[in-house]
Deep mutational scan, measured.
Amino acid sequence: MIVFVRFNSSHGFPVEVDSDTSIFQLKEVVAKRQGVPADQLRVIFAGKELRNDWTVQNCDLDQQSIVHIVQRPWRKGQEMNATGGDDPRNAAGGCEREPQSLTRVDLSSSVLPGDSVGLAVILHTDSRKDSPPAGSPAGRSIYNSFYVYCKGPCQRVQPGKLRVQCSTCRQATLTLTQGPSCWDDVLIPNRMSGECQSPHCPGTSAEFFFKCGAHPTSDKETSVALHLIATNSRNITCITCTDVRSPVLVFQCNSRHVICLDCFHLYCVTRLNDRQFVHDPQLGYSLPCVAGCPNSLIKELHHFRILGEEQYNRYQQYGAEECVLQMGGVLCPRPGCGAGLLPEPDQRKVTCEGGNGLGCGFAFCRECKEAYHEGECSAVFEASGTTTQAYRVDERAAEQARWEAASKETIKKTTKPCPRCHVPVEKNGGCMHMKCPQPQCRLEWCWNCGCEWNRVCMGDHWFDV
Rank of each mutant, 00 (worst) to 15 (best):
I2P: 12
S19Y: 07
D20M: 08
I23N: 00
K32N: 11
R33E: 05
Q34V: 15
Q40G: 10
I44L: 07
F45R: 06
L50G: 01
W54I: 06
T55R: 07
V56M: 13
C59T: 07
D60A: 10
D62M: 13
I66R: 04
V70Q: 03
R75Y: 12
G94E: 14
R104S: 14
V105K: 14
D106Y: 04
V117S: 15
L119T: 15
L119M: 14
I122G: 15
S127Q: 13
R128A: 13
S131R: 09
G135P: 12
A138R: 12
G139H: 11
F146R: 01
V148K: 00
R156E: 10
K161H: 09
L162Y: 00
L162R: 00
S167V: 07
T173H: 09
T173Q: 09
C182D: 11
G203I: 02
A206W: 00
E207G: 05
E207Q: 09
F209V: 15
E221F: 07
T222D: 10
A225C: 06
H227Q: 15
S233P: 06
I236N: 04
I236L: 07
V250T: 06
F251M: 04
C253M: 01
S255N: 10
L266Y: 10
V269S: 04
R271W: 03
D280A: 09
D280V: 13
P281I: 07
G284M: 02
S286E: 00
L287A: 03
G308A: 05
Y315R: 01
C323E: 15
C323S: 15
V324R: 04
M327E: 13
G328M: 04
G328A: 04
G328L: 03
G329I: 03
R334G: 06
A339C: 08
L342I: 10
T351E: 08
L358Q: 14
C365Q: 03
E367C: 06
C377A: 02
S378W: 11
F381V: 07
E382Q: 13
A383C: 11
S384V: 07
Y391H: 07
E395S: 09
Q400F: 13
W403T: 03
E404V: 08
A405D: 13
A406Y: 13
A406V: 10
K408V: 12
R420I: 11
R420Y: 15
G429V: 08
P437I: 05
E444D: 15
E444P: 05
E444T: 11
V465L: 15
